[in-house]
């Protein structure tokens, strides 16, 4: 309070104090891995965090996407805020995974695909001809629905990304492997068997290994395509806790079929239907008070 300018009235100081408590309240709760607490003044807190700490990381403008002649995305424009979790929900085949894969140009490796519109990462077009797609994918990592450990040791799985990036220093690799596994909450389970095959891990461990492997390339953005849909509830909970932790340092975009999951882990949600972005907004607002009829029908389970 000493730093508060003296021109403010006592009343104003009191208000700013209350305001700060409101902002830090949900955040410290988040740090403990709990759900943000709904306070008496949630809107104030949300607006404050949304505008102050979350600038736009990825912006898409009028994106259309085609598999051959089949158009699967129609005019999708969406802003994804930095250091938060954005969830894409919608029924199967609605284009949410395709849209996710556009963000790090994973669709490039599928023959016969094309798109129009722009995908901007921090303002620069990722589809620009001067962009090195290999470097883009290092900054925008991806975790898939099916865990895909390479048939190598646990260590080599994590060290793969740094190695293809040219890192040869053994000590540095060791350090990266350890940090990545710790961040993915897997270190304690595997630290004594880093040289054994990653294929021997359980499904949930494999998925956390894949997340750790993505973290090892030091990305800004992590795209997750239904990362927990093949996992049992306990493993799902661990992955969700992990996402909650990771959002402090990374921008996370998650595609999920599970609306409870979207509600649990994300701050913003985008609802896709038949290739169209129907509605996007603050997760709690979208789930409690959707503006579109289609959104409401979907989240209340009337279809999908």
């Amino acid at each position: 309070m000493n730093s508060t300018p003296t021109v403010l009235t006592t009343n104003a100081i009191d208000q700013s104090e209350v305001f700060r408590v409101d902002v830090t309240g949900p955040r410290s709760a988040a740090a403990q891995g709990q759900k943000p607490i709904t306070t008496a003044r949630p809107t104030v807190a949300k607006q404050a965090t949304g505008e102050v700490t979350h600038p736009v990381k990825i912006r898409t403008k009028n994106v259309d996407f085609f598999y051959g002649d089949n158009q699967v995305l129609f005019d999708v424009s969406l802003d994804i805020p930095e250091k938060s979790v954005t969830a894409f929900i919608g029924p199967s085949g609605c284009g949410k995974s395709t849209f996710l894969r556009m963000l790090n140009r994973m669709n490039d490796i599928i023959d016969g695909t094309r798109h129009t519109g722009d995908v901007l990462l921090e303002g620069s077009d990722v589809y620009d001809s001067s962009v090195d797609v290999v470097l883009l994918r290092k900054r925008v990592g991806m975790v898939f629905q099916k865990s895909t450990p390479f048939p190598k040791s646990i260590f080599d799985n994590i060290a793969y990304g740094p190695k293809v990036a040219g890192l040869r220093n053994k000590a540095k690799l060791n350090e990266i492997v350890e940090t990545s596994l710790k961040r993915a909450a897997l270190w304690d389970e595997v630290k004594d068997r880093l040289n054994s095959s990653a294929m021997a891990l359980s499904g949930g461990q494999q998925q956390r290994l894949c997340i750790a492997r993505t973290l090892a390339t030091d990305p800004d953005v992590i795209l997750m395509d239904e990362p927990a849909s093949a996992l049992d509830p306990a493993s799902t909970a661990r992955v969700e806790d992990l996402i909650f932790e990771l959002k402090k340092n990374y921008t996370i975009v998650i595609v999920t079929h599970n609306m409870q999951q979207a509600a649990r882990v994300s701050q913003r949600t985008a609802f896709f239907f038949q290739g169209v972005l129907v509605e996007t907004g603050d997760t709690r607002a979208l789930f409690t008070n959707p503006t579109e009829k289609q959104t409401e029908d979907y989240i209340t389970g009337r279809f999908g």
Partner: peptide, 21 residues
Amino acid sequence: RSLREAAYALGSTKFDVSTRV
């Protein structure tokens, strides 16, 4: 295919994917 995609998503070139994965 999923193994290849995972490797591409980690910033691999085609050569990396072929020879290392």
